[in-house]
Every structure is written in structure tokens, then in C-alpha cells.
């Protein structure tokens, strides 16, 4: 074989330099664009957080503050204890109560969904029984019917069952859904057959195998799903709006938007902003603190 050799020329050196420059530039552009993206996402929050530390008239006058004011403590204390409202109406609900209701709803929905999905997925995967596929499809098809679609007839069912204005009414209908069942089914299918065989030879029955092997192996999946479902529950809007008229059961997402009246000038914007911050804090914290499980849960439930 013949090889053409030549020395490194000035052009080669120049090309190498230009390449290095171009790569550095492309990296900087990427960072700049990402920073811009982060800014766009953070800005509305910034305005809200800052706004929640000013007094009502500053905001009402339209002097949009870009830096913290001195009323933060007072605003949050009054949002927490008294609640805000458009000043015309009475019966403001204090934020602590709404947060408590939201917390209850979110946790009950998440725990309930996980519990019944674990059981049903276990039945579908680890047993052969007549009607197995029918049951699977009955559950699977509910994937196609989000609560928003069948909202009015479901509401009627709730009225018939006397579940209006109750925590049970808020939670139970949202507890059944195919997503969690499908996730667990998918996960269970990856549990090697040999574990079941080993358990059978060890003398473990189905319930014992569930408790001693399946449940411990599912811990990360359960954590991941909990994050997703907690957020799902916390952020419910249409359903609580429909089911709850009792102020003692008001959830924070719905309650906060109800604070904004139509006569704009009279709104207690500072209290509304403080409540908005309180309303988004728990789910945002859950996402940030449990980011690893959250991303895993999200990308796996949707697979």
C-alpha cells in the first residue's frame, strides 16, 4: 500500500484553531439559551414570590415590584390564618385549611391508587384464572376515559351515592385508573420466573410471595409512582370544583383561583400571591427532592 505523506501545514493549524473556537462558541450558545429558558420558567414565579412580600396597595396601583418588600411575614401570616378574598365576599378560607385538605386528597389518592393497583396487577400477572383477560381489558379501557370526559354523569352518580361534599367523594372516584395498574403489571412481568419458582420450592404461597418478595422489589416503583400521583392529586381542579361546595373541604388550587374576583381593583393581590406560592410549594418540593424517582416514574408510566 502506498501512503501519501505531507507535513502539517499552516492551514491545518488554522483549521484546528477554528474548530476549537466553533466548539467553544456552540457550548456557550447552549448555556446562554438554557439560561434564557430557565429565566422564562422562573420569571412568573419570581414576580409572584416578590409580589407576595408587598402590601396590597403597591400591587393594586400597578407598580410591579421586582424586589422583595417588607410585608412578607404579615402577608403569609394572614394568608395562612385568615385567607384572602376579594374584599366584597365574606367567608375566606384560611390557607392552612385548604393546604390540609389538598394534602389529604393528594396523599389519599396516591396511596389508594398504589394499593389497589398493586393488588390488581398482582392478580393479573401471577395468576391464571377464568376471566383474567376480561378483567385486564375492563381496567385497561378506563385509560381512555379521563374524569373530565364523563364529568357530568359521574357527578350524578356521586349525588345518588350521597358522596357530594365529602373527602371520600373527592378521593374514591379518582383512585381507580389504569395507569398505575399498567405500570405495576409491566414491572411484575420483569420479575424473573425463577423467583416464583424458588419461592414455590421454599414453600411460599401467593400472599407470602407478595409480601416477602414482590413488595420489597417494588419499592422504587412505588416511590416513583407516589410522586406522580401526589402531584396528580394535588393539582386536581375540575373534580373538586364540582364535588365540593362546603368551604371546610376547599382545596388550595381551586380555593386560590376563587379568591380572584371579577372586580379587579378590590382583590387582595398580595394575599392571593402568597396563597399561590403556598399552593405550588408542596408539589414543587416533592418534584425537586424526589427528582430521580419522579423522572423514572414519569418516563416509565408512559412507556
Amino acid at each position: 500500500m502506498r501512503m501519501l505523506m505531507r507535513d502539517t501545514t499552516m492551514e491545518d493549524i488554522a483549521l484546528a484553531r477554528a474548530t476549537a473556537r466553533r466548539q467553544a462558541r456552540s457550548r456557550w450558545i447552549a448555556h446562554a439559551l438554557l439560561a434564557l429558558g430557565v429565566l422564562i420558567f422562573a420569571f412568573p414565579i419570581w414576580i409572584t414570590v416578590v409580589g407576595s412580600t408587598h402590601d396590597v396597595s403597591t400591587i393594586g396601583r400597578g407598580e410591579v415590584p421586582l424586589w422583595f418588600g417588607g410585608e412578607g411575614v404579615a402577608n403569609y401570616v394572614s394568608a395562612w390564618l385568615r385567607g384572602g378574598s376579594s374584599l366584597r365576599t365574606t367567608g375566606a378560607v384560611p390557607a392552612w385549611l385548604m393546604l390540609w385538605n389538598s394534602l389529604n386528597m393528594a396523599v389519599l389518592i396516591a396511596v389508594g391508587k398504589i394499593a389497589i393497583s398493586l393488588l390488581s396487577a398482582y392478580a393479573v400477572v401471577f395468576f391464571a384464572f377464568p376471566g383474567r383477560m376480561v378483567c385486564f381489558w375492563l381496567i385497561f379501557i378506563t385509560l381512555m376515559l379521563p374524569v373530565e370526559v364523563r364529568i357530568i354523569p359521574t357527578f350524578e352518580v356521586m349525588v345518588n351515592l350521597g358522596l357530594i361534599n365529602s373527602m371520600a367523594g373527592l378521593v374514591v372516584p379518582l383512585v381507580a385508573s389504569a395507569t398505575a395498574t399498567l405500570l405495576f403489571r409491566q414491572f411484575f412481568l420483569t420479575i424473573p420466573d425463577e423467583y416464583v419458582e424458588a419461592a414455590k420450592i421454599d414453600g411460599a404461597g401467593p400472599l407470602r410471595f407478595f409480601k416477602d418478595v414482590v413488595l420489597p422489589l417494588s419499592v422504587t416503583n412505588i416511590a416513583a409512582l407516589f410522586v406522580i400521583l401526589f402531584i396528580y392529586g394535588w393539582n386536581q381542579y375540575l373534580w373538586p370544583l364540582l364535588i365540593v361546595s362546603d368551604k371546610d373541604l376547599e382545596t388550595v388550587v381551586v380555593g386560590m383561583t376563587k379568591m380572584i374576583g371579577t372586580g379587579d381593583q378590590q382583590n387582595e393581590w398580595n394575599i392571593i400571591m402568597a396563597t399561590a406560592v403556598l399552593a405550588m410549594l408542596p408539589p414543587v418540593l416533592v418534584v425537586i427532592l424526589m427528582q430521580r424517582w419522579f423522572v423514572k416514574g414519569l418516563t416509565e408510566t408512559e412507556k
Binding site: P192, E194, Y195, E197, A198, V213, P216, L217
Partner: peptide, 9 residues
């Protein structure tokens, strides 16, 4: 077992 089937947890 071939893949030992040790319970990982």
C-alpha cells in the same frame, strides 16, 4: 437455578 434466583433484597 441457572441464574441462581437469589432474592435481591
Amino acid at each position: 437455578f441457572q441464574n441462581y434466583a437469589l432474592y435481591p433484597h
